[in-house]
Computed example of a mutant assay.
Amino acid sequence: MIDVSRSTALPAEALWPVMSAVRDWGSWLPTVDSVTPTEPDRPDEVGASYVVVQPGLPKATWTVTDWRPGTSFTWESRGPGVRTTGTHELVPGPDGASIRLGITWSGPLAGLVRAVYGRRGLAYVTREAEALEATARERAAR
């Protein structure tokens, strides 16, 4: 399991519009080349799926399994013998919010996938938390 938490002075209200606009991730997130909805007219909600292309990783289809506007979303990608779950959560605090991002692998090949992609996954999730804060800060300053 990978779990990265980053505290920021920004409120969740400033972070959510950036984090939840998954279709735009390729424009600001250095770990994502593109995110393409499988059903372009479908809103971002439970059941929506996206094809995600990331440098150094196989192309994957992610499906939203939990969507809590303003707070969090979870999505899953399935491959032979493994299910990857990505969590994206904003935890409000007295002086801003915490960005919590995570990846878990389950299934018969989870150990192998974790061994092959775990280090890269941790680096990517850490960079994603940093980029989320920086992008939200830049947009809030406009």
Rank of each mutant, 00 (worst) to 15 (best):
T85Y: 02
W75E: 14
V113H: 00
A97T: 04
P80Y: 14
T71H: 15
G56P: 02
A140R: 15
G56M: 06
T8E: 04
A115R: 10
L10T: 04
A97N: 04
A14T: 13
V53D: 11
P11V: 08
V22R: 08
P80C: 06
P11A: 10
V35Y: 03
P80G: 11
R114L: 11
V35S: 11
P55V: 09
L15G: 09
E76F: 00
P17R: 08
G79D: 08
A129K: 02
S49C: 05
P69I: 03
R114Q: 14
S98W: 14
S27A: 12
T65I: 10
A12L: 09
Y124K: 06
S72R: 15
W62V: 10
G56H: 05
I103T: 13
Y117E: 08
E76K: 03
G111D: 04
P43E: 05
V125Y: 05
T36E: 12
H88N: 14
G47T: 03
R23C: 07
P92T: 04
G86A: 12
P17N: 09
A12M: 06
L109R: 13
P40W: 08
R23W: 04
A9W: 07
S49T: 13
K59L: 05
T126I: 00
T8Q: 04
S77Q: 01
A140M: 11
L57I: 02
S20R: 14
R78Q: 12
T135R: 12
R42F: 01
Y50K: 05
V64Y: 13
S7L: 12
E13A: 14
S72I: 10
D24A: 12
P11Q: 09
A115F: 08
L101E: 12
T38I: 09
A110M: 07
E138P: 02
T8F: 06
R100V: 14
Y50Q: 06
Y50L: 08
Y124E: 14
T36Y: 05
L10N: 07
P94M: 04
A141T: 13
E133V: 11
D3E: 15
A115M: 09
Y124P: 00
G47Y: 00
D44K: 05
S77N: 10
I99S: 09
A48M: 05
E133Y: 05
D66S: 15
A9V: 10
A12N: 11
G111K: 05
D3Y: 04
L57C: 04
H88M: 06
E39W: 01
E133I: 06
T74Y: 02
W62R: 01
T38S: 09
A141Y: 02
M19C: 04
R119P: 00
R120A: 13
T104Q: 13
P108S: 03
E13D: 13
P55T: 07
G121Y: 06
K59D: 10
Y117F: 14
